[in-house]
Computed example of a mutant assay.
Amino acid sequence: MGTLALLGFGPGGWGAALLGAAATTLLLALAGFALGLVLGGLAAAGRIAGPAPLRLLATGYTTLLRGVPDLLVIYLLYFGGSAALGGIAGWFGHAGYVGVPPFWVGAVALGLISGAYQAEVFRGAYAAVDRGQIEAARAVGMHRGLILRRVTVPLVARTALPGLGNVWQILLKDSALVSVTGLVELLRQAQVGAGSTRQPFPFYLTAGALYLAITTVSNLAFARAEARARRGLP
């Protein structure tokens, strides 16, 4: 079978499987990034304005998750989650292995990892906010919640966009690690196709092209968002 037929959508072609796996990779990264936004925002807020115990907890979270290998986090959640579910099921008389959904384990793992990095991005962006604008908001009578919603959050988001774009690119590549849980994402599908046909080069080259397409579109989206956020600035 020729390369075009092998990677096409006809009988025996792997095109649909590769595109489906690319969609899984994108959804996995999006889910992890969205969870990371929430965790990163909470951790950054805790480190900036929280009480001492909360600052300690947020600092421990970011230090730990940035200091251990990403693959280890995935393994711990996957096997630890299975062991926990198995223990709970044992209370109800179930014997045997209880698996956890690989997609959601991967999404949570990527969310925890990206959240640690996003927290540092948000913290740095907050440090760059012009305090004069916050003082001006107080001078016109805005309360703390209104200042946060109308002044602080928009300014932090604008400054954080480039850093968040970098975190997103890293997260896209880290999504390939989730294949160790059995999830068929893009790289795993390329491995399956290469092993089944004994033609690794076309599959890995196609996987690389699909990753590059996703990252290129992502770069354009973040660049447009940054340009929109900086309208009116010199």
Rank of each mutant, 00 (worst) to 15 (best):
G124C: 13
G124H: 12
A125G: 10
Y126I: 08
Y126D: 07
A127Y: 09
A127G: 09
A128N: 12
A128S: 15
A128C: 08
V129I: 11
V129L: 08
D130H: 12
D130E: 14
R131L: 11
R131F: 05
R131C: 12
R131Y: 10
G132A: 00
G132W: 00
Q133T: 06
Q133P: 01
I134C: 01
I134W: 06
I134R: 11
I134F: 06
I134N: 05
E135W: 05
E135N: 04
E135K: 00
E135F: 02
A136N: 01
A136S: 04
A137M: 02
A137F: 01
R138K: 09
R138P: 05
R138L: 07
A139I: 00
G141S: 00
G141R: 00
G141M: 04
G141W: 04
M142G: 02
H143C: 13
H143F: 13
H143N: 15
R144V: 10
R144H: 10
R144P: 00
R144M: 00
L146C: 02
I147P: 06
I147A: 04
L148V: 12
L148R: 10
L148G: 09
R149S: 11
R149V: 08
R150G: 12
R150L: 10
R150M: 07
R150A: 13
V151L: 06
V151Q: 04
V151R: 01
V151C: 07
V151M: 03
T152G: 02
V153Q: 05
P154T: 02
P154F: 04
P154K: 07
P154R: 07
L155C: 02
V156F: 02
V156D: 02
V156Q: 07
A157V: 13
A157S: 11
A157R: 11
R158W: 04
R158C: 01
T159C: 04
T159E: 14
T159A: 14
A160F: 04
A160W: 03
L161C: 03
L161R: 01
P162N: 07
P162G: 01
P162R: 06
G163C: 05
G163A: 03
G163E: 04
L164K: 06
L164S: 04
G165W: 01
G165D: 03
G165A: 02
N166W: 01
N166H: 05
V167N: 03
V167S: 01
V167M: 04
V167I: 03
W168L: 14
W168R: 00
Q169K: 05
Q169G: 08
I170W: 13
I170A: 14
I170Y: 10
L171M: 09
L171N: 09
L171D: 05
L172C: 11
K173N: 13
D174H: 11
D174N: 15
D174T: 08
D174Q: 12
D174E: 15
S175H: 06
S175R: 14
S175Q: 10
S175Y: 07
A176T: 15
A176H: 11
A176P: 11
L177G: 10
L177N: 10
L177R: 10
V178S: 06
V180Q: 14
T181W: 14
T181L: 06
T181R: 12
T181G: 13
T181E: 12
G182A: 13
G182N: 15
L183S: 12
L183I: 12
